[in-house]
Nucleic acid binder design. Sequence first.
DNA 1: CCGATATTCATCCTTTTCGGTGAATATCAG
DNA 2: CTGATATTCACCGAAAAGGATGAATATCGG
Lengths: 114, 114
Amino acid sequence: MESSLDNTMLALADPTRRAILARLEEGEARVTDLAAPFDISLNSVSKHIRILERADLVRRRREGREHFLSFNPAPLDDAAAWIEARRAFWTKRLDALERALVADDENNGRRKSK
Amino acid sequence: MESSLDNTMLALADPTRRAILARLEEGEARVTDLAAPFDISLNSVSKHIRILERADLVRRRREGREHFLSFNPAPLDDAAAWIEARRAFWTKRLDALERALVADDENNGRRKSK
DNA sequence: CCGATATTCATCCTTTTCGGTGAATATCAG
DNA sequence: CTGATATTCACCGAAAAGGATGAATATCGG
């Protein structure tokens, strides 16, 4: 049972891969181009790319011997949605707490919910 | 060089841990309570909690022999910000593409419009 | 003190990450 | 064909994840 959200989050849990995605915002790039800024081997970068592809965050277009990678932001939707759901809840909860405190102030009563 | 974003994203890259966080929205819970819905050992859940604590997504309050866990959404801010930065870029880029297509349309009206 | 409960610690095992190197494959340029 | 280039494949190794079990620790209720 491997959720695609698992793959997306895992792909984002590494600074090299996040940098690769940020770099791909400038447009397509070859594996060699993506590897250039990093102090790791080309092979390691190739592996990072595979993890990004598994998460479908990166798409590959072959042209001869060169592989052009591009950024596909679609999987970020689910990731953002999950995080926002947690954050929205928390905001709501803080608001509720604030209202409760104000109400408490007004009638000076004790309340216990649920 | 271990970014806290790494820890946050990694913590979110597991369905058990995401479920634990969602469960903690209902309020504090003990380790045993959190473990109940899952078909894994209490020990494994304890380890998941440690990973959530490493990411500071979960805080612990001890009361006698019971450990009460609570949800701390703060680290989600950076995660959401990173993702939104990528999405914002993409939206902007799609807009630019659309403008380019429209401009193309005006120049030579042979293009089929959607 | 005694037994039950809540939780972690110490291991162990298997799989995956994340890095490396060297060889293979495919393509381009002469 | 030959050599250079772009990329992956096949390993190796250390570290960590994710699961399990059994023992230790601490606390509660009598």
